[in-house]
Amino acid sequence: MRPASESPVVRFTQVSKRFLLRRNAAGSVKELCLAALHPSRRETHRELWALRDVTFDIHAGEAVAFVGRNGSGKSTLLKLVAGITAPTQGQVLVTRDARIGTLIELGIGFHGELSARDNVYLNAAIHGLSRREIDEVYPAILDYSGLADFADQPVRNFSSGMHMRLGFSVAMQLRPDILLLDEVFAVGDAAFQAQCLDTMRAYRHRGGTLLFVSHEPESVRQICDRVIVLDAGAVVYDGGVDEGLEAYARLSASRGIDVAGVDEHPAPASPPRA
């Protein structure tokens, strides 16, 4: 794997993100008007800090795994990098014009009535490619997904596995500079997972930066060279992979949650979960 270079590509400076859990939220003009008349209908909200004071730099070529229990703010963090949401406090910076591949959910934006071809074009355009660039990568996408025979079929006829293949192929063939992956290996059969892991390694070899959210220590060990452990929105560990996974295991154990697969001597080639 290539050594990480010195210039940061993602920088978080004291980033906090607050969500308002609204009660009586006015979701329509009607409710807004009623709320103006009735004090009891006014909106009240509870604050939820999904991220608290998070600071880190990620350098080009690094592969960072974000681990933490459900609700610890991992997905929020990815969405901040992607620009889907904005931080409440602090500053999120990303290299200007870095192409960010987001794979937060697979098969997002596929329209059932359109053919696989049309869907690939649309999806690639959403990720910012021009028509000429898409024309160039389209054969590779089709090839990688192994769905060449179904290119003109409407996607609604696809199985969920085919959906996933197509989505992953698009995201991987767009040649992103920064790739955001959220738990995408958790689904799919063994062969697909093996293919994903190979692709990840090739991507890293090209010098791509990876931000990876996972609960699975095995894939983290195989792909990443740095682990950031989040707990209740705060960074509790930032460093090497093995220590990071141990820290996460301790954290989970102290809260009485069993984390499958994290033990002192993990089997080096345990089969991926089917």
């Binding site: 992607a82 999120v92 910076l93 290299t95 200007r96 490619l129």
Partner: peptide
């Protein structure tokens, strides 16, 4: 190239639409 910016920094509207030409057409 190379400078750090907020992920959704505002570009002029016309420039945005120009860059998203393909997406618009599709």
């Amino acid at each position: 190239q190379g400078t750090l910016v907020a992920p959704r920094h505002h570009t002029p509207v016309l420039a945005t639409l120009r860059r998203q030409q393909t997406l618009l057409m599709l």
